[in-house]
Computed example of a mutant assay.
Amino acid sequence: MRVWNQLADFVTRHGSGALITVHDVKGSAPREAGARMVVRPDGAFHGTIGGGQLEFRMLDIAREMLGAGRGPARIVDQALGPDLGQCCGGRVKILIETFDSRDLEDLGPLVEAEAEGGLFEVECRMEEGRVRREFSSAVGDDRWTGWRETHGEARTPVLIFGAGHVGRALVLSLAPLPFAVRWLDDRDDAFPAHLPANAKAVRMWDPEAEVAEAKPGSLMLVMTHDHPLDMAIAAAALKRDFPYVGLIGSATKRARFEKRFRELGLAEEKIRSLVCPIGLPGIADKDPAVIAASVTVQLLQVREHGRLERNLSPPAASNDT
């Protein structure tokens, strides 16, 4: 979620807004430090700090603060077990701030930094009861006494080659998740009229060039309408060091492709790294939405661990559709 964009929108459209941040965590808690949610004056909100009694209580406090008008920030110290009856058992400090139209000028640079993509850091300190945020770095300055916050979205790049049924389902499945999707097809009429905000549809003219220009760390999904095209894209992807190269298909398709990869001189280690069939083991349903859900979980595992754990590789089943 783009916190600052959402907050500026609430202030512009509704006159004010509150920002709730998990400021500090000790022990077990529903969310990590830096988790945030933005609250409207009528109580509507975006984001989460973990749900449960903690979130309900912080929303009540934020609404009370908004009702009282723009004022000083508040830090709420909560022991999750004794105070709220939550089983996590840890302790959290929650920072709650209110904003109105007087803050729009200060919010502007944060909104712009967020829109550029990626992560950015700001330095924070309390001034007259409110949080002041600055981009200028005070790293190494012993006179600086405050804290640092990280904002923005670290989206993992995903290239999806093919806009068929599974490709469409996968793009929708990835829509709310921390991925930046480049969706490629060589047909003019392949893409739907509306796309998720994190997806870009690209008419593909040179698939091997797309692979060559992909950022290191990109995740590659090959599922075009044409097996020779799949072959060319998969071979190009395996020549690079991507953490995930997935090919839709069956064990038979994989065997045929492996034979051709060896003829092309690809190393056995590279060939073994190909994920085909794609998706989690034990899921045999070939419905595009089911395949997409299974692949999405697999991509999240790769994003978390930096590679695909070999014991998570799919069995010799088929997801040809």
Rank of each mutant, 00 (worst) to 15 (best):
L80Q: 08
V297S: 11
D100K: 04
A44Q: 13
D206A: 14
P207S: 03
W144F: 15
R256T: 10
M65N: 02
E269Y: 01
T12E: 14
P196H: 00
I94G: 02
G17M: 06
G52C: 02
T12G: 09
L107Q: 03
R70T: 13
A232H: 09
R133L: 09
W144P: 03
H23K: 12
R91S: 06
A201C: 06
T321Q: 08
S273G: 09
A68F: 00
A284P: 01
E208Q: 15
L308T: 12
R133K: 15
E32P: 00
V139Q: 11
F191R: 08
D100V: 04
L266C: 04
I248V: 14
L7S: 07
A237P: 01
F99V: 02
E153M: 14
A251G: 15
R203A: 10
E123S: 12
N311P: 10
L7R: 07
S137Q: 00
F242Q: 07
L107R: 02
P315N: 13
D103T: 05
S250N: 02
G52V: 05
Y244L: 10
M231Q: 14
Q6P: 05
V25G: 07
E97M: 06
W4V: 02
D106C: 11
L119N: 02
V76G: 02
N198H: 04
I61L: 12
L170S: 05
D83G: 03
P288C: 06
A255S: 11
L308D: 10
W147I: 05
I283D: 06
S318T: 15
I96D: 01
M223H: 09
